[in-house]
Amino acid sequence: MIYFEKVSKTYKNGDKVLDCVTFKIEPREFVSIVGHSGAGKTTLLKMLLAEDHPTEGFVFFGSSDVSKLKKDQKNKFRRKVGVIFQDFRLLPHKTAYENVSFAMEAAGRTEEEIESDVPHVLELVDLGDKMWNFPHELSGGEKQRLAIARAIVNQPDLLIADEPTGNLDPINTFEIVQILKKINELGTTVILTTHNKGVIDSVGKRVITMDKGRVTRDDKSGKFSL
């Protein structure tokens, strides 16, 4: 489903952040990417989201070359991919309900679909009673669960989680990981980047280890090792 083919990225100042990265992710896989800060994890995800382009090599999502998407194709493509971040990136002036419904509106869904799906997905991440709260009224764990609800409401083929537990305590971290595993079991491909050893060990699935822009290990059922 996703192919990274000899992808390299060199910035104008000569920094090489990715060096000939090649790997493949099958549908319904749960892949964790680990590595030190600056190993190139976030750059990798940015290329998958068409936020950044490789200097060499290709990134394929299905049969389309992500870096060659035009503006409106890019928007459509992003609706097929859900993303969550360490800093949540919620819309601060919108309620929990509106944060989720905005993603559906952007995808051009009807009012009926929005009215039935939003409460349902908020219930799924256990935020049914905080639907009308604004992000600043939610705890860190709740914010991240809201971000997950927003990411999955359009039933994406792929969910990208960029250090989703970086700002959370162990209990919230555990909850988020359980939700991600559940989403994966329901059929969505999940890519997770993290520093957290406990997270990797509790997932117990494929682990790609990166260092200085290169893939150094790719274990089928990996443990955290740096």
């Binding site: 409106d72 609706r79 993303v83 919620l90 819309l91 905005f102 993603a103 509106e105 952007a106």
Partner: peptide, 13 residues
Amino acid sequence: EEISVMMLVGASN
């Protein structure tokens, strides 16, 4: 920030 989030969610310009 809000605008960049909206773009990431796939909203058109």
